[in-house]
Design a binder for these strands. Structure first.
Length: 308
RNA sequence: GGUGGGGUGGCCGAGUGGCUAAUGGCAGCAGACUGUAAAUCUGCCGGGCUACGCCCUACGUAGGUUCGAAUCCUACCCCCACCA
């Protein structure tokens, strides 16, 4: 069983990953391992387009609703959690299928990240605080001084990461990346779903409109009332931040749908770029224009073929 | 009907005689990406080329002034505000 391949379904938001995974259940006894950095958070079901309760009753989903909004989560933690979940599903005699749009999470699971040493969360938070007050140029310069392997790319976010690692572990990030190579925990069988851009845009708009009808604003208002930190992780997803802006009067209500749709389109585009270039090994590329049932049948057939 | 303001590249919006295919922003396209990744960044962005250069088309429309106009003049069309 150690060499068993694990089906992985990736693709941009709106291609229909969820529907296809559910349709796949007609072919295999599957359980879904979600690789989605926002569905990890509890609540905000509409905003993050989670599979419904009913759907999840029919096909169990793992790594959905695991932390509360405001709590820090990471790709590394995902790799660990997902590996455990996959193990569990296998032990129960079912087939785990990884489904998700967060490329880095999939990479963490398949290729492994470097073995990051334990970092004191309090020191990390204090440093993050100091970093927040510095401008981009300062951060980039600082990161360059601390880590000669740092290329100055990726802006403040990645500069901050380089600084954090160098300061808190005593070794630069590039050193860890080279010296502490990790192993992936699954052998992937990857299906990359894609769709013509105009179709994707169309689906995104329809889906955004539907989100509002299902009560996106109410959902976000409830999360805020519940004490979810506006700035915290989990509350920064597309749809959520725009809804918060409307609730706080910073964005006119009638611009809500278009703002969310635009941000979603841009995200979908970034995902397409990531999956087009960053996936390693054999990848089955499928145009998701057809129905979920047809696609599931194609995927099931291809899976059978690669097994023999 | 009168007076004033305005019509700029897909959109918004600078520019008031040459250095302007035209600052910016948005949208779009392409790309980067090892632990906040729904993040964070980079490039391109009127069209066509035998492309470190050349050609064409472009600042409401039509004329005009000038060596030279998005920028000045005239007429017309449209929009907005106020007055009637």
């Amino acid at each position: 069983m150690a060499d068993a391949r694990t089906p992985i379904l990736v693709g941009p938001t709106g291609v229909g990953k969820t529907a296809i995974a559910l349709a796949l259940a007609a072919h295999w006894p599957i359980e879904v391992i979600s690789a989605d950095s926002r569905q990890i958070y509890r609540g905000l079901d509409i905003a993050t387009a989670k599979a419904t309760r009913k759907e999840r009753d029919r096909v169990p989903h793992h790594l959905v609703d695991v932390v509360r909004p405001g709590e820090r989560y990471s790709a590394g933690r995902f790799a660990l959690d997902a590996a455990a979940a996959i193990e569990g599903v296998r032990a129960a005699g079912k087939l785990p299928v990884v489904v998700g749009g967060t490329g880095l999470y999939v990479r963490a699971l398949v290729d492994g990240l470097f073995a990051e040493p334990t970092i004191d969360p309090r020191a990390r938070e204090a440093l993050a605080h100091a970093i927040d007050r510095m401008d981009n140029a300062t951060l980039v310069r600082w990161a360059g001084r601390l880590d000669r392997g740092y290329r100055g790319e990726g802006g403040r976010h990645r500069a901050a990461r380089a600084i954090e690692i160098a300061l808190l572990t005593g070794q630069p990030l590039s050193w860890w990346q080279a010296a502490a190579k990790a192993q992936g925990v699954v052998t992937p069988w990857t299906v990359r779903l894609t769709a013509p851009r105009h179709l994707l845009h169309q689906r995104i708009l329809a889906r955004t409109t539907a989100m509002l009808e299902r009560g996106l604003l109410e959902e976000v208002a409830a999360a805020l009332a519940d004490g979810a930190p506006v700035e915290g992780p989990g509350m920064d997803g597309i749809g959520v931040r725009e809804a918060v802006a409307v609730l706080q009067g910073r964005l006119p209500r009638d611009l809500l749908v278009s703002s969310i749709a635009t941000a979603t389109r841009q995200y979908a585009k970034r995902q397409e770029t990531w999956f087009r270039h960053q996936l390693r090994g054999d990848v089955l590329v499928l145009d998701a224009t057809r129905s979920p049932e047809q696609l599931a049948a194609t995927i099931a057939a291809a899976w059978e073929q690669q097994r023999s």
